[in-house]
Design a binder for these strands. Structure first.
Length: 223
DNA sequence: ACATTAAGTGATT
DNA sequence: AATCACTTAATGT
């Protein structure tokens, strides 16, 4: 049985979240359609939204929070690709759905996150019917591509210390706080390297006054 | 008090 | 920059 009260609350959240974050870009008709077919969803931190090999059924619109998008191999070694923040969507989702392919990535909630889920069949049709939607999807594609290039650049051209520092800055950015609750091990995981390497690099960053750190806690002193 | 987990270090490749 | 082997420090029960 669906609880009508709970449903009602979700409906209000959906409308509010939609208006605040997307009201400016989308046509009124489109907003109405989204209200009709979109589903509101709350994710708690570290909840897995999508995993490799999963069929993509929904197109996500971030309303609050952040999502990290990562790649991993057979041995479970991971690499962080980029974050999605409020007002973003995962453009990869669309390219996947169009070819009805399975997901190439894993998406995990970085914090508690609210999103609106659009069934893919609508997302595809709207490309033709709403210029605002098309613009939004293409822009997002562009942003994600740029972030991916940034990640590739950091892998190819930056040394470990620069990479770790960038990682910390990005993380502070999406979490809106220079204080990060994180272990050396989990950084190593995200950056696909060994914990000892991270520990040593962090020590250097600390010596040069860029961060301060204690167990499970790193603070960026300038960013 | 003891076990577990996080972080630091020297030596080697 | 990665790996090994080990130590030390912080924390949970």
């Amino acid at each position: 049985m669906v609880n009508p009260l709970k449903n009602n609350v979700a409906a209000i959240d959906l409308e509010k979240g939609l208006q605040e974050n997307y009201g400016a870009f989308f046509e009124t008709e489109l907003l109405k359609e989204i209200l009709k077919v979109g589903k509101y969803k709350r994710l708690s931190a570290e909840e897995v939204i999508l995993d490799v090999g999963q069929e993509i059924q929904y197109f996500p619109l971030l309303v609050s929070g952040a999502v990290r998008v990562m790649r991993y191999d057979e041995e479970g070694d991971e690499l962080l690709l980029y974050y999605l923040e409020t007002g973003d969507t995962c453009a990869l989702s669309l390219s996947c759905c169009l070819g009805s392919k399975k997901s190439e990535i894993k998406a995990v909630a970085e914090q508690n996150t609210d999103l609106i889920l659009i069934p893919v069949e609508y997302a595809e049709i709207w490309l033709d019917t709403y210029p605002g939607w098309r613009r939004f999807v293409l822009d997002n594609y562009h942003y994600r591509m740029n972030e991916l290039l940034e990640t590739v650049d950091s892998l190819a051209f930056m040394n470990m210390e620069e990479r770790v520092y960038k990682y910390l800055k990005d993380k502070a950015m999406v979490n809106h706080s220079p204080q990060l609750s994180i272990t050396h091990q989990s950084i190593a995981y995200d950056m696909h390297t060994a914990r000892v390497v991270i520990s040593r690099v962090l020590k250097n960053l600390e010596k040069s006054g860029k961060i301060s750190s204690t167990r499970n806690q790193i603070e960026l002193l300038q960013w």
